[in-house]
Write a protein that binds this DNA or RNA. Sequence first.
DNA 1: TTTATTTCTAAGCATTTGCTTAGAATTGGG
DNA 2: CCCAATTCTAAGCAAATGCTTAGAAATAAA
Lengths: 187, 187
Amino acid sequence: MARSKQYNEEEVIEKAMGLFWRNGYENTSVRMLEKEMGINQFSIYSSFGSKNGVFLECIKSYKKKIHRITEILEKSNNGVAGIKQYFYDFLEFSKDDNGKKGCLVTNTVNELGEHGDPIIMTELKSFFNEIKTLFANSLKQDKNKTQETIEKQANYLATSMLGLSLASKILSGEQLEDFIETAFINL
Amino acid sequence: MARSKQYNEEEVIEKAMGLFWRNGYENTSVRMLEKEMGINQFSIYSSFGSKNGVFLECIKSYKKKIHRITEILEKSNNGVAGIKQYFYDFLEFSKDDNGKKGCLVTNTVNELGEHGDPIIMTELKSFFNEIKTLFANSLKQDKNKTQETIEKQANYLATSMLGLSLASKILSGEQLEDFIETAFINL
DNA sequence: TTTATTTCTAAGCATTTGCTTAGAATTGGG
DNA sequence: CCCAATTCTAAGCAAATGCTTAGAAATAAA
């Protein structure tokens, strides 16, 4: 038949994800993607259709990547203590060679707001709800919590994660730890 | 002498601020500023030097604007209850005709990260610390709180404000209220 | 080896970006 | 009224943006 692809799509998406993560969506140009992914624009467009298409694949890849730490929480049986551990795990997860990058999804929600591509925005909001459900399931492990309490605390913790993601970019490690410890008092 | 300016600098900056607030820094072009401010590019550049310059003035203007609600907290003497009220005041403050816009400063920190203009980033971080000091001063009004507790809770509340700013863009009013109520339990 | 098919390179497209500038319009002081 | 000072308009600059395309290079099946 013909020539075979000289790059692995998963691998180049992984690289693209890092670039979007560090720079945001709009501040990442196709030229930058070319360099980082190590393939030509033609290859990018024939594989992923558009810059938007590349980004959507990156979000999928990000979800897989963060599964490494959500999985720990899913399997743990420590109730709210497991969620606190997840907060610490996230800080480690989002650590870069030079500082923290926050959460890719959170960053993008903030950057694009309601002006972003609807498909992307739907993807991002669904991620927020997945995290909230994850937290709710952990909270159920704690006995003597009403359904209403679980609901509210899951909502509170998911929103606190947004704050942590943002704060990780400007606060010191000690301040971040203080935040987590205070956030979990009396839950 | 000569012709006099046909626009008021404070007024046009107010308009520019609204645009940056809704769209973010990078997604606001000089052409868009032209339209919104109602003046020509020449006027923009002769008055403010650069797009960066316009934005810096907008940050100043934003600080003045938000002083409307920080002032309430400064003058109140209700300790942590005053801070909770500030959270609600902020939601009202950041309300737009079509939804919430979050906090301009928070949005920009998240968007530009460490890649932004250093002068802007310094300005933004100082704002975060001002809010934290404001919270700490209110917490001092509550008796029987140690200095260490005040420090940690101020840090916690300032970080929670980051979360609230972000969450205001994607959560319902009810969810936001739940978040605030839960965040202030046992403080 | 030939050939059909797909991937690759690299140049180029129109549009938008932040910013500049030449010259016309305006307006105050003499 | 005149003229010098300052504003305005509008055109234009180079560079960067997302995306396309013509043609060379590679390769699997015949």
